[in-house]
């Protein structure tokens, strides 16, 4: 029987959660024994090659490309997991949510104290994905099956969740793994 596949992505995130995935250290060898990686920054596969069992999504949705990728994940992954606080709550990028988009762009490209932009233009190449009016947590955009909180979730938490899902066993998350202060 073919090994189940997992996919990962970082939307409006900082890749910190992916660093945390890598923090499972040598256990990644155990992991590749039981799964194959599909689309993921870890192996640099850009598009899905087939159906996956688990998708890990870091970061919320800040622009239309994030939304498209997230939809793609929902379509290809049986179980979709919001990984970390940005995916779950919007996180730091969502700090712009109380400020109108136009003001954000003006501050970033025109008025900010450290801005050097002699052209006075806001980048607007047709290749640049349009921003959303605000940053959305993933579950507000598509259905999410599980949420793994943490900034980032620790490697042990990710490991516990993945191995439980892959071996069809109950997830054991002791207090130490889900306490954040």
């Amino acid at each position: 029987m073919a090994k189940p596949k997992i996919a990962t992505t970082s939307l409006a995130g900082c890749f910190g959660c992916h660093m945390s995935i890598l923090d499972i250290d040598e256990r990644i060898l155990e992991l590749v024994d039981i799964v194959d990686f599909d689309k993921s920054p870890i192996n640099d596969i850009k598009e899905f090659t087939g159906e996956c069992l688990v998708g890990l999504v870091e970061g919320g949705c800040a622009n239309e490309e994030n939304v498209r990728v997230l939809q793609d994940f929902r379509k290809h992954c049986k179980i979709l997991i919001s990984l970390g606080d940005c995916a779950i709550n919007g996180g730091l990028p969502a700090m712009r949510n109380t400020i109108p988009l136009k003001e954000c762009l003006d501050e970033a490209y025109l008025n900010g104290p450290s801005v050097y932009n002699p052209s006075g233009r806001i980048p607007n190449d047709s290749e640049i994905p349009l921003l959303l009016n605000k940053v959305y947590p993933c579950h507000e955009v598509v259905k999410i099956d599980y949420h793994l909180p943490g900034c980032p979730p620790s490697a042990d938490t990710i490991w516990q969740a993945l191995t439980a899902l892959l071996t069809d066993k109950p997830m054991e998350l002791p207090y130490e793994l889900i306490k954040y202060d």
């Binding site: 939304v67 136009k102 047709s126 994905p129 349009l130 959303l132």
Partner: peptide, 17 residues
Amino acid sequence: KALGEAKSIAGRPSMHF
């Protein structure tokens, strides 16, 4: 609705939706 503001600021349609 989520793209409305950006479309009017950028003056171009969405490439994905």
